[in-house]
Every structure is written in structure tokens, then in C-alpha cells.
């Protein structure tokens, strides 16, 4: 075990570094993304429908104005993020093909519902 451990972690270390470099490159290319804002108020998303450009990476700013935390979740967008009460969260979305992408607040799924429309 002891003999193999450094070998394994070295491999992963380089893998991790490589992916890190790749990431740096890719983020630089996406600099200057359009920003969209969403608010959570009284367990509701405002606005509940958000139109964004298709095939473009956007930066979504979600501001939770409630005292309680909320989890932004979307199976269609493959996103999940806990947003504490009174906090602003950054979520990157896209580039998306045109279509409707529902999202919801996992802690209040019956009221906190919304939709992103890529067009």
C-alpha cells in the first residue's frame, strides 16, 4: 500500500494539474459572458421566466432575499447549488440549444419554480 500510494497520487496529481490548465484556458475564452439576474423572494423565483440567448454561455446571478436557504436545482440544466439566506450565488449556464429548461428550488419545489428559455 505504502509503496503504491505515491505512484497513484502522482498520477492523479498530474491529471488534476492538466485539467486545471485546460480549465484556465477555457475560462479565459469565455470571459465577458452576459449576466442575468434572478431573485428568490418568499420562496418564489422572480422573474419565473428568464429568456437567454441560445448557444451562449451566460452567468446567472441568483439572489436569495429570503432568510431561509434555497437550493437552485435543474435536472435539465444539470445544475444544483445551495444559496444561503440573503446570499448571492453565481451559476454558469450554457451554451444551450434553443428550448425550455425548467428549474426549481429544491427546498420549496411547489412554489419556487421557473423556466429558462433559450432562444
Amino acid at each position: 500500500m505504502i509503496r503504491v500510494m505515491p505512484c497513484k497520487s502522482n498520477k492523479l496529481h498530474t491529471l488534476f494539474l492538466l485539467s486545471l490548465l485546460m480549465i484556465m484556458g477555457s475560462s479565459a475564452a469565455y470571459a465577458g459572458k452576459p449576466v442575468f439576474e434572478l431573485q428568490i423572494r418568499n420562496h418564489l423565483f422572480e422573474p419565473s421566466t428568464l429568456s437567454i440567448p441560445a448557444n451562449t454561455k451566460i452567468k446567472l446571478l441568483v439572489h436569495n432575499t429570503d432568510k431561509t436557504p434555497e437550493e437552485f436545482e435543474s435536472y435539465e440544466l444539470n445544475r444544483e447549488k445551495v444559496i444561503l439566506g440573503g446570499q448571492k450565488a453565481v451559476i454558469f449556464i450554457g451554451p444551450l440549444p434553443p428550448g425550455k429548461y425548467p428549474f426549481f428550488g429544491e427546498f420549496n419545489p411547489k412554489t419556487a419554480q421557473g423556466e429558462i428559455i433559450a432562444e
Partner: peptide
């Protein structure tokens, strides 16, 4: 349908 108004869903 469903919609938000008046602070409720």
C-alpha cells in the same frame, strides 16, 4: 397554468 403574482405562486 401556473404563474407568480402578488408574491405567491
Amino acid at each position: 397554468s401556473e404563474a407568480n403574482f402578488g408574491g405567491y405562486r
